[in-house]
Design a protein around this nucleic acid. Structure first.
Lengths: 350, 350
DNA sequence: CTGAAAGCGCTTACAG
DNA sequence: CTGAAAGCGCTTACAG
């Protein structure tokens, strides 16, 4: 591998000048700049990133904090793959690489990996590797740990967790608006008794979707009995269980807004088990638009999240902090209502 | 951040001794070692990784080559998420981080990212960042590029692409065995006219699954007419199209082995469209065991790949090369037959 | 605009 | 077993 020194010798200039050509080209005279550039190209010179990071205290790396412990199911969420790719692609476009940081449950590995129980270890890793910033992906209940990151002073951007800090921001979908749209859609289809299956309490998107539900119900002048709000955990089983409870009510709902597609699929199974037809007996709307939503029978109406867009927005937010130094406001990406058969309008509706 | 020098001064030893304590503890006398270790712990010392990489020419990073260009659908394969996590988790357990390398289609970004069309750029990145080795994930037709990596002399391990080289190996599922098992299962269920929908020609796993199919058919003394082998591309649409062709045959098969679950789902849709019942009129077996397989109606019999296991095997292979220096033989992981309703035995069979 | 020099924080022969 | 010293390949004030 050719070094800056070889180029300097070949060009008859100092290494400082060569370095400047790559970092502040305009501070070098045109003649010298051009000869250095030509020689560098001929030798296929690439700066040694370790040396660069050591001398300048910055690297072209962004860290990803994502707890993928097998005991925590959150990371399996199918929408994360697309989000991750959106993130990586946007970072790539700016010449940054994404470093998936090692996580370790065991104390023995504390030295190298880090556990969310100990955010300091991550902060340390960030400094040791001269990472520009951190992107935080929640695997469920990581909110408190993320708050600690946000207060560390490192540039951080969280996905779906509302962190605050000098150099911290977050990106999320418009969960309130999406939920509102779901309810309006059901109301327009003639439904009056509309229930909801929520995500876990203390989860921000879950709370927002619930708030949007309530807003739109109030707007339509519809009452929401307590037993029409059932708490789930975003996963399929909880949707199934919640739906069983709703079906057993004296006056069951004619439509259910589920805060995730996974739960909507569970609800669909429960309805089928109970001998109910979807959407004739009960209409369903989910949230996320995972691949599965279009494939179940009947296909699910849902609010599509812009998964790749969220990843890209996270990338831009963290790079803004790394470059400009200013902290961008939270990014809230629109959702999109995708109408499928699970909420086909009831007969007799305009 | 505390440095090796501070520790050395505090302990009254040289920096060389402190460095040795962390790298070759046994070459340092017990007393000095213990005092250095104690002081280091108290100061929460962590070595600066950039300096370490620069001086030692190695980092604790493994690179991931995964072309996620949006024009190439291969990266969307749902089994990759679990594979990636298996890889990351196993690397974490050994204190390594996974670096998702920037890829760039545009020439403007050549300097930072790399394109598979130009493997040299990746090799360069690997050296610049002092990566220990590379894991290669195919997004479709990357075989030739991967061969170039394998010949570069860098430690590389490919997933599902049979590369060869001094420091290169690969991991894959037992595709031949899995396909054989699929056919045996169908034969045992009473089928004689068994067709297959293959993956793309020139894809190694596709070829292996086809070979296993032929082997087991021969073993059972069953003929395979040419029109019982239809080429697909692993994706759903091709399965649907292929199934249409099979159904239109004068003597259509009573069972179809599909080289991927996605294609099996497509075949299922085609069968349903044609008014055929699965498995009564035609039985289906897929490959992969993606989440969807269990959720379609009827649920799909399939050969489960050990997705996380493949990722972990890739991690171990690359770390073996990084540490021991020797190149492990290809790892072939067993598949597991998961019998579901789509291949329920035909009436009148033992 | 340019160069000489110090420095980033480690590792590793080389002597002893 | 230990230390002094050179070196890894860059960046960046500081002078000029």
């Amino acid at each position: 591998m050719t070094t800056i020194r070889e180029i300097a010798e070949l060009c008859g200039v100092s290494v400082a000048t060569v370095s400047r050509v790559f970092n502040r080209p305009l501070t070098v005279s045109r003649e010298k700049r051009e000869v250095v550039e030509r020689v560098a190209r001929e030798l296929d010179y690439r700066p040694n990133e370790s040396a660069r990071a050591l001398a300048s205290r910055k690297s072209g790396l962004i860290g990803l904090v994502w707890d993928t412990d097998h005991r925590r199911p959150g990371w399996r969420h199918p929408y994360l793959q697309e989000l991750l790719i959106g993130l990586k692609t946007a970072l790539s476009a700016h010449g940054y690489h994404l470093l998936m940081l090692a996580t370790s449950g065991s104390a023995a590995l504390r030295a190298v990996g880090a556990s969310l129980a100990d955010p300091v270890a991550y902060v340390n890793m960030t400094r040791r590797h001269h990472l520009g910033g951190l992107v935080l992906i929640d695997s469920g209940k990581d909110g408190p740990a993320f708050t600690a990151f946000a207060q560390s002073g490192l540039p951080c951007v969280a996905v779906d967790v509302a962190v605050a800090g000098d150099r911290a921001t977050y990106v999320t979908s418009d969960n309130v608006g999406g939920a509102r749209e779901a309810v309006r859609h059901l109301v327009a289809a003639g439904h009056r008794r509309i229930a909801t299956i929520t995500g876990p309490v203390a989860n921000a998107p879950a709370a927002e979707r619930l708030a949007g539900f309530h807003e739109a119900m109030a707007e339509a002048g519809l009452a929401v009995p307590d037993d029409h709000v059932v708490t789930g955990d975003f996963h399929r089983g909880s949707g199934q269980e919640a739906m069983r409870r709703l079906i057993a009510l004296p006056a069951p709902p004619t439509a259910v807004f589920c805060a995730s597609d996974e739960m909507a699929v569970g609800a669909l199974l429960a309805a089928r088990h109970a001998g109910l037809r979807v959407p004739e007996d009960v209409a369903l709307v989910g949230f996320d638009d995972i691949e599965l939503a279009a494939l179940v029978d009947p296909p699910l109406t849902t609010l599509a999240q812009d998964k790749a867009g969220i990843g890209a927005a996270a990338a831009h937010a963290v790079l803004t902090m790394v470059h400009n130094g200013h902290t961008p406001p939270p990014a809230v990406l629109p959702t999109r209502l995708v109408v499928r058969a699970s909420s086909r309008p009831r007969p007799g509706t305009p």
